[in-house]
């Protein structure tokens, strides 16, 4: 199995979804992500294993990268979605693959990509009170970290 087969499937069932095809990855439209994911998981391609979800900050846009694996054909698909910096929202895949829950939380925590319809979108690695997204390229590392003072701390 290779990537062209998946591109063909997409072209048949979701015309216009594939924006860009490169040797190592496929880029699909943001709106058709959920439909594409459903096809991958439920068709006979059997992509059962959502291996990782992450993002890459390209300064003008953020790429959300999904690594999805099929045990049946032993193929790792790299699926990308480009998000403009003005609208960092994307559909969550958590109800298709349970693993997406934590992986998307991590991506949200580190990049600020908002996953819509996510069951529990909270920060996972950083404290809840943080407002920054540390893996963005425009993130300025402060010289000294101090958590915003909470009511309890003030009282103490």
């Amino acid at each position: 199995m290779d990537q062209t087969q998946i591109t063909q499937t997409f072209n048949q069932q979701l015309p216009g979804a594939v924006v860009e095809e490169q040797s190592k990855f496929l880029v699909i439209k943001k709106e058709s992500l959920l439909a594409a994911a459903k096809i991958l998981k439920d068709s006979e391609l059997a992509f059962q294993h959502l291996h990782s979800v992450t993002a890459v900050d390209r300064k003008d846009k953020i790429e959300v990268v999904y690594h999805i694996y099929t045990y049946k054909y032993r193929f790792m698909l790299t699926l990308k979605v480009y998000l403009p910096m003005t609208d960092l929202t994307i559909e969550s895949l958590a109800h298709l693959w349970q693993s997406a829950n934590w992986l998307e939380r991590e991506t949200y925590d580190l990049f600020g990509v908002k996953f819509l319809n996510h069951p529990d979108l909270r920060r996972i690695l950083n404290p809840d009170v943080w407002t920054d997204y540390p893996l963005r390229k425009d993130f300025n590392r402060p010289d000294f970290y101090r958590l915003p003072q909470t009511e309890g701390l003030k009282a103490a």
């Binding site: 291996h51 992450t54 990268v65 690594h67 349970q98 693993s99 934590w102 991590e106």
Partner: peptide, 15 residues
């Protein structure tokens, strides 16, 4: 430019 580490324990703990 970017180095993403996909760690096994992360997913193993989620379950």
């Amino acid at each position: 430019y970017r180095n993403k580490i996909r760690s096994p324990s992360f997913s193993n703990l989620a379950v």
